[in-house]
């Protein structure tokens, strides 16, 4: 099989805009899932609401497209009721960090055996470009017309603090690294959280002076700081640039987990 065999082809074409990074992240995720030797009938994709959350609708396994922010709570029910099922959750920055923040914290704390892939485009795409908890300070959206005044959330720090067993961040530019990170997440018992920074040309790029889709991908690449480099800066007592985000495998540990298949 290849990742293409996981797609529900009668649902195409998809709803994602031209230049959207979500397809890249779905492909990376399915490429990793395809390496797990999982049966389709034993795999369930769960999501909340938003552009990212439309992903399970294009995958041919059992899938649950739920209410805004609640994907992890639904996934908890699925996994705890039938541990044999492999559960993967697709979510976005608004879904996970704003309306679903509490469910995110507690899913990480319980360390339930599932993999959560967050497509962080730093904006509410589906509702037309409102500011989200990850919109960087100063950036424009329809609800931050003078630039976002709020500091942005670091979702990986949150997941680490709350207790997830595996945490990694990459971008839609780092496709090979992202695929490997998802694979490592799928293989790690407990909750695995993979944040994929991605471009939203329609609603983020357009308002923030990115003329081309590639400009935004380039921006994500330029603002990525490898974890090893960040660690070196810290070791040398040097300043970590405030406008950059750390990429790489940030945590891999074995806290007690729930829902692990017997």
């Amino acid at each position: 099989m290849t990742f293409e065999d996981w797609f529900r082809k009668d649902r195409l074409p998809h709803i994602f805009c031209a230049g959207c990074g979500n397809g890249t992240i779905i492909n990376c995720t399915l490429a990793a899932v395809d390496q797990m030797d999982w049966k389709k009938e034993e795999t369930v994709f769960v999501s909340g609401i938003g552009c990212s959350s439309r992903a399970p609708g294009y995958i041919m396994t059992d899938s649950l497209h739920t209410t805004h922010g609640r994907a992890l709570a639904f996934a908890t029910g699925v996994k705890m009721a039938n541990r044999k099922l492999n559960v993967v959750v697709f979510t976005g920055d608004g879904d996970l960090a704003a309306i679903g923040g509490n469910h995110f914290i507690h899913a990480c704390r319980r360390n339930i055996d599932m993999t959560v892939v967050c497509m962080n485009n730093q904006i509410y795409g589906m509702t037309g470009g409102q500011g989200s908890p990850t919109t960087p300070r100063g950036y424009l959206s329809t609800t931050t017309p003078y630039g976002s005044a709020e500091p942005a959330f670091d979702l990986c720090d949150l997941a680490i603090a709350a207790g997830a067993n595996y945490v990694a961040r990459w971008t839609s530019y780092h496709v090979k690294e992202l695929e490997k990170a998802v694979l490592a997440g799928l293989q790690t018992p407990g909750l695995s959280f993979i944040e994929a920074m991605t471009q939203c040309p329609t609603n983020f790029g357009r308002r923030n002076k990115f003329r081309q889709v590639a400009d935004q991908v380039e921006f994500l690449k330029k603002h990525s700081l490898l974890k090893v480099k960040r660690d070196r800066l810290l070791l040398e007592n040097k300043e970590v640039p405030a406008d950059m985000f750390v990429v790489g495998e940030l945590v891999r540990r074995s806290r007690p987990a729930m829902g692990v298949s017997p």
Binding site: V46, D62, L64, T66, T67, R70, A73, F74, A75, T76, G77, V78, K79, M80, A81, N82, L85, N102, H103, H106
Partner: peptide, 13 residues
Amino acid sequence: LASMAAIIGASWT
């Protein structure tokens, strides 16, 4: 919110 979500998820299994 989560309680209701969890029982729905469980019911689908």
